[in-house]
């Protein structure tokens, strides 16, 4: 959602792709949606990409910054899409006003798990805190996606592009956040390999 750094994260991925000599097209949303509304950015990497938007079911990776907003975007994903989702909810004001309800995060994750076998939940806010700043959620998630199977960019390029864009004084924090995020997903992946899904 607006203010979470979705645009920064997508800019990092896009310039990492450019750095690696890959073709890339992206779409962003500016303006009113940025005032606390839902923000979707898309990044398409590969030969001959032209369309900045992704068809339903056409995403290889869904990176969700917020659980309810990620579930709202589920239609861009298919059975073969890896889904990395931050489990920390940001409750819209409508809910505090008592006009609408925010479902329990567990219910949202169950719903994700019901739909997809490639779900990688991560508490990016806690990991960011652990790295030294709540502001580093972004970096945690960028580190996390680099660990996903068949991710097309090298972890080092993404990290370099990220660090180039953060203020000098918070570089260490963001590097730590990036590495911890990466580590979390790697360990989830190795668990998956050890205990394949039985259903």
């Amino acid at each position: 959602m607006g203010g979470q750094g979705v645009l920064l994260a997508s800019a990092v991925l896009g310039s990492a792709a450019l750095e690696e000599g890959k073709e890339v097209v992206m779409s962003e949303l500016h303006g009113m949606a940025q005032r606390g509304g839902s923000v979707v950015a898309t990044v398409r990497i590969g030969e001959g990409v032209l369309s900045p938007l992704i068809p339903s079911g056409g995403a290889n990776l869904l990176l969700g910054f917020e659980p309810a907003e990620s579930l709202r975007a589920i239609q861009c994903a298919s059975k073969s899409t890896s889904i990395v989702v931050n489990v920390h909810p940001i409750v819209p004001i409508q809910v505090s006003l008592g006009l609408e309800a925010y479902p329990p995060v567990e219910r949202i994750l169950e719903e994700f798990a019901r739909l997809s076998d490639l779900l990688y939940p991560i508490d990016a806010l806690s990991v960011a805190r652990e790295s030294g700043s709540e502001m580093a959620v972004n970096s945690v998630l960028l580190g996390a996606v680099c660990a996903v199977k068949a991710f097309p960019l090298s972890k080092d390029t993404v990290q370099e592009e990220l660090i180039r864009r953060v203020p000098r004084q918070s570089r260490n924090i963001n590097e730590t956040a990036f590495s911890l995020g990466h580590e979390k997903i790697r360990s989830l992946l190795s668990e998956q390999v050890q205990s394949p899904s039985t259903d």
């Binding site: 959602m1 709202r72 409750v91 819209p92 809910v95 609408e100 479902p103």
Partner: peptide, 14 residues
Amino acid sequence: ALGPSSLRLPSRPP
């Protein structure tokens, strides 16, 4: 495409 999910989500207007 996956979904759509039947879980009711709160709206998030700006």
